[in-house]
Design a protein around this nucleic acid. Structure first.
Lengths: 338, 338
DNA sequence: CACAGGATTGCAAACGGTTGCAGACTCGCT
DNA sequence: AGCGAGTCTGCAACCGTTTGCAATCCTGTG
């Protein structure tokens, strides 16, 4: 079908090796020959078969990206970042959606492993051992998850939580509820830790409402318990959950932020559009994807373990104050002017 | 690094050919040999190198998927459908996001073309000629776009619009505004046509408010013109636009649906969560992805042009009536009982 | 006991590239 | 003219598979 290197060689009247060199190591072939080859290649619309090259060089020029659920707006953002950066480096991206299934995850990873130079695992569901095992014989970069000895790009959960708490405390909140994500979620655990630490530092109460699905429905399910907790503000595991909270609170006639303040995490596009617009900790999701690619590519280029293993990028979040947070309900005036 | 077929052969004490056969054409090798080979393969964690196979068979076992913008929630849904179906068939998926750039689109497509057996182009931005050209020497399935002679899966825009109009007419609306998408959008054009036809059939007025970006911002930009149009109901190019409308209308103190009804198209996840929840035409996005894969795979298996060329799946939308549509503002009672 | 015929298995070529090595040429000098 | 040093270019091997063909083994039968 498509033209092969030999077709080009024949047309240019040279050997295949010369074509190969003319195209990938110009400078080593005579200028006029090179011109002839290039003309021939052009004419035939020739483009080298990456797979064949990969067989020899051991580099496929492809990377794999595994995400748990594309329906969660968080992930398309990082996929976009990965995409963009990969394109810059001229590598193609395999995408796999595991549907939140840890078992499918390792299966997919193994299937992908053979045809890529490395993998980016985004918020992986697999357990720590499995991840370590995978990372042992494949180039792997983790996103939003930390595993001993595996390069990763993560978000500064503690810092983000600190900002959220500082904001709420400034608004007079003294009792804050935490609506956690899935029990096994690495980021939920770390957000929780950061939150408790920040609350402690500020001397305010934090009440843990429990674990919920990282979805709109999870937020709806958590709302009533959050209200019952007696807190004047709620921090949710992520924006989707926060928006679910908003919906249920509205349905119950509870006004946000007058009766209750709500803070999300992620800053997905939807958050600007919710009513009220959601105050949230913006996580540079796309940037995370970009950095993951850089890390992975560096790792591929220089497989020297020492320089890479343990490398990790930590991205800082930024509090986006919008309309879902306000003065604490049990205060009637600006706490700054008592 | 990874085990090759020869490693397995050595361990099993047979030749590479036997391993190949044992694995891909069982039944042709002796049962005990096969067992030995399988054990060896298992032990070594062997998985064939798809690229090498591709060289010989001419099949890479990969497909490519090109979308204009993952940030638009419409696309992750179809990507998910493609993903799921591809996995069933054991093919891997290359994903490319073109960032709405028609030029990047053809470039990416050409780059991908060499390493896949076929391509799924989702709502392609490229012009008709380019698409036809690409389809000429690659297996291509279009999604949400029709081009002469190229297999495609599309949505029944006319039918969807008819449902929307029937719904609005039943609510007493007699003057409906249409907020169109990008000027060059195939689906915007067809939705517009369907809408006009339906309006004509029902004997109601349709006023075209113009073309807007298919985004939240586009909706915000369109809102005031929609209001000024004097219509009592607005149909938006898609849900994102409709939600943008909702936001701007709210900001202007216009109540939906009491003052104005709003109808979207797509039924993205966000639509259930908007306030008010958006009445919209649900498009089976994920299903579209699945069918596209089936179509593409069929095309790959049987490259006989006649059976495939022109094949197209048309998926029907379903009106989801939620809270953004109500009785026409200029009516005070149920129009069914005048 | 020889032999036909089927069942297994191995050899080697092929796929489309890349690359080490060596041969062929071209120069510039002596 | 002879020679050394470059500069180019082609040959051939190799990457990890698959597959046509031929060789081998085994079995049943005459």
């Amino acid at each position: 079908m498509a033209a092969t290197i030999r077709d080009v060689a024949r047309l240019a009247g040279v050997s295949a090796s010369t074509v190969s060199r003319a195209l990938s190591m110009p400078g080593v072939v005579n200028a006029t020959t090179r011109a002839r080859v290039q003309a021939a290649a052009e004419q035939l619309g020739y483009a080298p078969n990456k797979a064949a090259r990969g067989l020899i060089t051991g580099r496929t020029g492809n990377i794999g990206l595994v995400v748990p659920d594309l329906a969660n707006p968080f992930f398309p953002s990082v996929v976009k970042g990965v995409q963009a950066r990969a394109r810059m480096h001229d590598v193609a991206v395999f995408l796999a959606d595991t549907d939140e299934d840890a078992a499918a995850e390792v299966g997919l990873v193994q299937a992908l492993a053979k045809q890529v130079d490395g993998l980016i695992l985004c918020s992986p569901r697999a357990d720590e051992e499995e991840l370590a095992e995978i990372a042992a014989d494949t180039n792997v970069v983790l996103v939003n998850r930390l595993v001993e000895g595996v390069p990763a790009v993560t978000f500064d959960n503690e810092g983000g939580m600190r900002q959220a708490v500082a904001h709420l405390v400034a608004l007079g909140h003294r009792r804050i509820a935490w609506v956690g994500g899935p029990k096994t979620s690495w980021s939920s655990a770390h957000r929780s830790i950061g939150l408790f630490a920040a609350a402690h530092d500020h001397g305010v109460q934090l009440v843990d409402v429990g674990h919920f699905a990282p979805t709109y429905e999870g937020g709806m399910a958590a709302a009533d318990q959050a209200v019952a907790s007696g807190a004047t503000a709620v921090v949710a595991y992520n924006d989707l959950v926060a928006i679910g909270l908003l919906a249920r609170l509205h349905a119950r006639g509870i006004t946000v932020p007058d009766d209750l303040s709500v803070v999300g995490i992620d800053d997905i596009a939807m958050s600007r559009m919710s009513r009220p617009a959601l105050t949230t900790v913006r996580l540079p999701k796309q940037r995370a994807g970009e950095i993951a690619v850089e890390l992975l590519l560096a790792m591929i280029d220089d497989p020297d373990p020492d320089t890479i293993i343990g490398t990790r990028g930590t991205l800082h979040g930024e509090l986006m104050v919008r309309d879902s947070t306000g003065l604490a309900a049990d205060r009637t005036s600006d706490p700054a002017r008592p």
